[in-house]
């Protein structure tokens, strides 16, 4: 806790200047970047059929993560704030991703293969797969 002692007498007035927050101009640039990334996402969606499925999914998720980090880091100024806030937030985030990922894995749910891999695991799955087959034939 020694580090915190040093910053204890930061008045609120100075806190922001000291941490070197981006200027309004950079905020606008960041927003434009976010808009651009969204545009890429949409383009990827439109050309979904022309791209390999895995590439599409990985690309979209990568873009999502990048957007997430930019908003969190700059707009929520985690990048400029005390580390502990990032840690606290990451604790919840990582825990959420972790437990729900495990939960969905326990359902033998696969993000990459759309749904369930094994057969007859849940009620209605057999009919469901039958329907998918009927549709494609």
């Amino acid at each position: 806790m020694t580090a915190t002692d040093n910053i204890q007498d930061h008045g609120h007035d100075h806190a922001h200047d000291d941490h070197g927050h981006p200027s309004d101009r950079s905020y606008v640039m960041i927003a434009l970047l976010l808009g651009f990334l969204t545009a890429i996402e949409i383009v990827m969606f439109i050309f979904e059929d022309d791209l390999p499925g895995a590439f599409n999914k990985i690309g979209l998720i990568a873009l999502m993560i990048v957007k997430f980090i930019i908003v969190g880091g700059y707009f929520m100024h985690l990048k400029f704030d005390d580390n502990i806030l990032t840690k606290l937030f990451l604790a919840g985030l990582v825990l959420a991703v972790g437990v729900y990922w495990i939960m969905l894995s326990a359902f033998e749910f696969s993000f990459w293969n759309d749904g369930y891999e094994d057969t007859g695991f849940w009620d209605g799955q057999v009919e469901f797969e039958q329907r998918i087959e009927d549709q494609s034939s």
């Binding site: 939960m103 326990a106 359902f107 849940w122 009620d123 209605g124 799955q125 469901f128």
Partner: peptide
């Protein structure tokens, strides 16, 4: 379950 819901969802959560 009549509409294909998975009751294990409750158990997991």
């Amino acid at each position: 379950t009549e509409k294909g819901a998975d009751p294990l969802l409750w158990q997991h959560l």
